[in-house]
């Protein structure tokens, strides 16, 4: 379809797995977040997730909740998210950008307007954690018009029947949640259970699958990268951005990416 499919093809040729990095626009403030986004893009991010803050982020753990809250207090609105995307797009023409937010802002701003402006400002697709395939048809119809890629989520509790439904909803890739729960760095991850789920997914779906929630260090990336097409790292990066440790952010991204090259 577009940048996302191209990216996975490119990574396959290089025998690498994808590093998907998430950060929140406006956290801890707009300027710092812009620097943070650039830093993760320069140091090995393959796909970028751009967080648009929402007042009630039920799928997020404490670290990212704080980012939502602070970004809203900073007055971040849709136009700021678009501005950031447009700025980054000029510097990074080939990296896919996924906008991540909850469904209510998209619905209220208006599906048509939301999709059109996102496309214009360089966004390639959306991840909407509270929009399961059953409820996504209306949005997907408009996204199709603007050639935007819908990235559905899978979960440890998804049955075979649901995995098929998720696969049908996915345009170019699926985001599998590693464990039941909310976002947030975890010390240990149940690799065997995750691997089994990814294998089940592969039997039913041939679209690339990245795994997120809890992924925060090189070891996680290496283990999961050995069976999935990539990992998503959020809270660990958001935390460093919040502390304005921009250099550390670049180093962590480099390390994570190393784990995905082996």
């Amino acid at each position: 379809m577009g940048r996302i499919s191209d990216k996975f093809t490119e990574l396959k040729e290089k025998r690498e797995k994808a590093l998907v990095s998430y950060l929140m626009v406006g956290y801890p403030d707009y300027e710092t977040s812009l620097k943070a986004f650039k830093e993760v893009l320069k140091n090995g991010t393959d796909i970028l997730e751009i967080g648009f803050p929402f007042s009630d982020p039920v799928a997020d753990g404490p670290t990212i909740q704080v980012a939502h809250e602070v970004a809203l207090k900073n007055g971040i609105r849709f136009e700021d998210v678009l501005e950031l995307s447009e700025t980054l797009r000029k510097e990074f023409p080939d990296i896919p950008f996924l906008l991540m937010t909850y469904y209510n802002p998209i619905f209220r701003i208006g599906l048509e307007k939301f999709c059109r402006l996102s496309r214009e400002k360089g966004i390639d697709g959306f991840i909407v954690p509270d929009l399961p395939p059953e409820e996504a048809e209306e949005l997907k119809a408009v996204m199709k018009k603007y050639v935007l890629s819908f990235v559905p989520l899978g979960a440890p509790t998804s049955t075979r029947k649901r995995i098929k439904l998720i696969c049908e909803a996915a345009d170019e890739m699926t985001y599998f949640v590693s464990v039941t729960g909310t976002t947030g760095a975890r010390e240990k991850l149940p690799y065997e259970r995750i691997k089994k789920k990814v294998e089940e997914y592969r039997e039913l779906c041939d679209k690339p699958v990245v795994v997120g929630f809890g992924v925060s260090k090189k070891e996680h990336a290496r283990e999961i990268g050995s069976f999935a097409d990539g990992v998503v790292v959020g809270s660990a990066l958001v935390k460093l951005a919040g502390q304005k440790k921009i250099e550390d952010l670049g180093n962590l991204v480099k390390e994570l990416k190393e784990g995905l090259r082996e």
Partner: peptide, 20 residues
């Protein structure tokens, strides 16, 4: 059967909860 009261209702939740 989709859990709607006319245009209202539905199931807007993370995938993890859908099976439950």
């Amino acid at each position: 059967e989709r859990g709607y009261f006319g245009p209202f209702g539905g199931k807007f939740v993370p995938e993890t909860l859908m099976y439950a």
